[in-house]
Amino acid sequence: MSRKLKEKIGFGSLAVCTFLAIIPVLLIIAYLIYVGGPAITWEFITQPPHGFLKEGGIFPAIIGTLGLTTGTIIVALPLGIGTAIYLVEYSKQNFFTTLIRIAIINLAGVPSVVYGLFGLGLFVLMLNFGRSLVAGALTLGFLTLPVIISAAEEALIAVPDDYRNASLALGATHWQTISRIVLPTAMPSILTGAILGIGRAAGETAPIMFTCAAIYIPSLPNSIFDQVMALPYHLYAVATQVPNVPESKAFGAAIVLIAIVCGLNLIAIIIRTKMRLKNTR
């Protein structure tokens, strides 16, 4: 066999392998939109469910997910960014900080269901918050914390030392240098990483199953100590737990969930693209 032919076959099979993997997935998503699309009406998005999920919309689940996402941001963003600033800009690099870094990287790889178990044990039972928005938000916040710390650390380390030196040499204090030069420079990357992490948390089911989410509460929560509906858990529930829910409603919920999560990812991608353009100018 000629070498040219070998090359054609080799690269050709790579192309086949790529499209073999990607096209079915795209077809499935197209099918999802085809079946679920008609279910998405103004009423579906803005009305509460009734008849134990068989009728009505998913408004409380959307609100619940937005509430949980907000809670995740409140818990994880300041703690994560503050920790990264301390680790990169203040702490001395020694065995202890290396240990912390390894712990953080490993926690980012711990399965989300383990966080769910932790949240159930600590917040719901031990601290007696019960199943509630606050317990769910704390669990998701802790889940996202290592991701945000790692992303922010990487972004801060990527800021050239030239900037720090130039600022210090002008008589700026340590904090002036960080707050006016280092953080603004790193912020787009920090936000990109953080939003991706938060988007992931917004779509998580296992951590909120037993810390927060309810199958059927048509009314909106009154306080952060109330249980809420949440989109990912709602999808799980209508697919497996509640019989005789029209299929289109489940598909519709899946599309809304994908839209929220992908919307968050899209924001991150736009920030990153803008940043790339700016840096190459």
Binding site: A166, L168, A172
Partner: peptide, 27 residues
């Protein structure tokens, strides 16, 4: 910090901040 205000420094590689010309000088 006070000392470096009195003793300025220019580095080997030009190191402007990634902000406007005006803001660099006004920093």
């Amino acid at each position: 910090v006070e000392l470096r205000k009195k003793v300025g420094m220019v580095f080997q590689q030009p190191n402007p901040f990634p902000i406007s010309i005006f803001d660099n000088i006004a920093y």
